[in-house]
Amino acid sequence: MDTNTLITQFQNGSVQAFEKLYEMYGQNILGVINVILKDEVRSQEICQDVFVKVWKNASQYNASKGRFFTWLLNIARNAAIDELRSKSHKQQQKNLSTDYFVDILETEEADTPSLDSIGLSKVLNGLKDKCREIISLLYFKGYTQKEVSETLDIPLGTVKTRNRNCIAQIRKNCDL
């Protein structure tokens, strides 16, 4: 069954379709939240909240707004960023690392990576810091092209091309 059919069924209230979509994207959304929060327990809780929200707001998704995954990504990073700004989280996480993916990399290397997914170190192999930085801002923090341009003090066009090159490196690592 193709993804678009699943999405239509999900929007018509099918719990089974929703479960399939959760199987497809749940682990990705958890990963996004984990990169932002760097807190495994809270990440799982927020992930649950995100999918409840996804179900409740199913009717709001529409292909003209972009990819379904992009819609999920947007809801997840907003929820995670809200959590990051909440008082309780600030108290727990006083020394937030600014090294993109480094914490996650260290955690992942400590554990045995699961068989069915490629390890983060392999995905990020050969990726320069400025790539990690721009990917983090665009995909994990939801910055617009203009916001990235201002934050990194680089021209708008450079944001697009640099990002494309960085994603190209990941695609190469994953044989895509």
């Binding site: 992942e108 983060l120 994603i167």
Partner: peptide, 19 residues
């Protein structure tokens, strides 16, 4: 491109399992 992002984000979940 989406596949690449799916790989990156899934790998970012490390050893965590989705609920």
């Amino acid at each position: 491109i989406e596949q690449a992002l799916l790989q990156l984000t899934e790998a970012s979940s490390g050893s965590l399992k989705k609920p």
